[in-house]
């Protein structure tokens, strides 16, 4: 009798486990009512993915080739970014960058002005969270740091999530004044007139090219739908430190991503700020003195305080000069 009871209990437990085995892999089903292109779960996880998607033919043909540069281009690049155009193999198309730099030059004030950032909001992932934490720390000591700029950040945030609604349970959303909001809603609620956006680190290595390209444009569409008068400054995705690349998570693919971002900026009239070059060393990897997560368990992408300071210094004193 006891054996029979034991057997029945074991059977009930095994049935219970089967029923509770929730499979979250398939999120490409049409339960997502938006038209946002939805990557699979394998694509949304970046830093921990063990099965990166197979590189498509499209992606292999998009690799950026280093171009021969004129002395003028090299000199211009050195002045603006502190790196040389010929040394960094991960730079985007130099001609495109120069065009965008000219646009940016015309938009900025004549002198350094921390007030420039008082009506700004910085949108980003965990990399920008580092900038936010630095701002909090410095401002609470009474020091100036990017004026009164607000921050709308979340670790793992990407263009996919930024283009998604709150009902999408696979998307990450930031909070604004304690409330979870979408990126476009958060920008609107913040009342900011300038949007500095840096996303992509959690897009390019986990999604197919056409997926992240679509999500980039959808994000900008939705931001402008709610806040049509904002000025958008797209910051390039920052580099990975040497020794921390793996799979598709490479500086070469960051260059492809940044090149696309730059082309969107040119086409849609957004400003493009090449933060990637500001923080890269002469070989195009993240300058290790700017990296705060080196060593065991580190990802080689998040900034140390010198890194966030170099970033903010560029924005306040070079971009705003």
């Amino acid at each position: 009798m006891k054996i029979a009871k034991l057997a029945v209990t074991a059977l009930a437990v095994s049935v219970l486990f089967s029923a509770c085995n929730i499979n979250r892999i398939d999120n490409t089903v049409t339960s997502e009512t938006e038209t946002t292109v939805v990557p699979t779960t394998a694509e949304t996880t970046t830093e921990t993915t063990t099965n990166p998607p197979v590189e498509t033919e499209t992606e292999t043909t998009e690799k950026i080739e280093t171009e021969a540069h004129t002395d003028e281009e090299v000199s211009s690049a050195e002045t603006q970014t502190g790196t040389t155009a010929t040394d960094n193999p991960f730079r985007i198309d130099t001609n495109l960058l120069d065009d965008l730099r000219d646009m940016l030059t015309l938009s900025r004030p004549d002198k350094p002005s921390p007030d420039f950032f008082n009506d700004a909001v910085f949108v980003g992932d965990s990399v920008t969270l580092g900038l936010k934490n630095r701002a909090v720390s410095e401002r609470n000591k009474g020091n100036e740091f990017l004026g009164e700029a607000q921050f709308l950040c979340a670790g793992s945030l990407n263009y996919y999530s930024a283009a998604s609604s709150l009902s999408n349970s696979y998307a990450i959303h930031p909070t604004y004044k304690g409330q979870k909001v979408t990126v476009p809603e958060g920008i609107k609620k913040s009342g900011a007139e300038k949007v500095f956006i840096m996303l992509g680190m959690n897009d390019f290595s986990g999604s197919a090219t056409e997926v992240w390209q679509s999500n980039i444009n959808k994000t900008f569409d939705k931001i402008l739908e709610l806040s049509p008068d904002v000025t958008i400054y797209v910051q390039s995705v920052t580099p990975i430190a040497n020794g921390y690349e793996y799979g598709k998570f490479t500086n070469e693919n960051i260059a492809v991503f940044n090149n696309y971002l730059a082309s969107v900026c040119k086409e849609r009239g957004f400003y493009y700020i090449d933060i990637n070059s500001v923080l890269a060393d002469e070989t195009g990897y993240l300058n290790k003195s700017y990296c705060g997560d080196l060593g065991s368990g580190g990802m080689g992408i998040h900034m140390s305080y010198p890194g966030t300071d170099a970033w903010a210094d560029y924005l306040e004193n070079t971009f705003c000069r």
Partner: peptide, 19 residues
């Protein structure tokens, strides 16, 4: 309620890449 929102946000952020 607001602290619970903060906590949930931290869970959402870390679930897939900072176990």
């Amino acid at each position: 309620e607001k602290l619970n929102t903060i906590r949930q946000g931290a869970l959402d952020e870390t679930e897939n890449y900072l176990p």
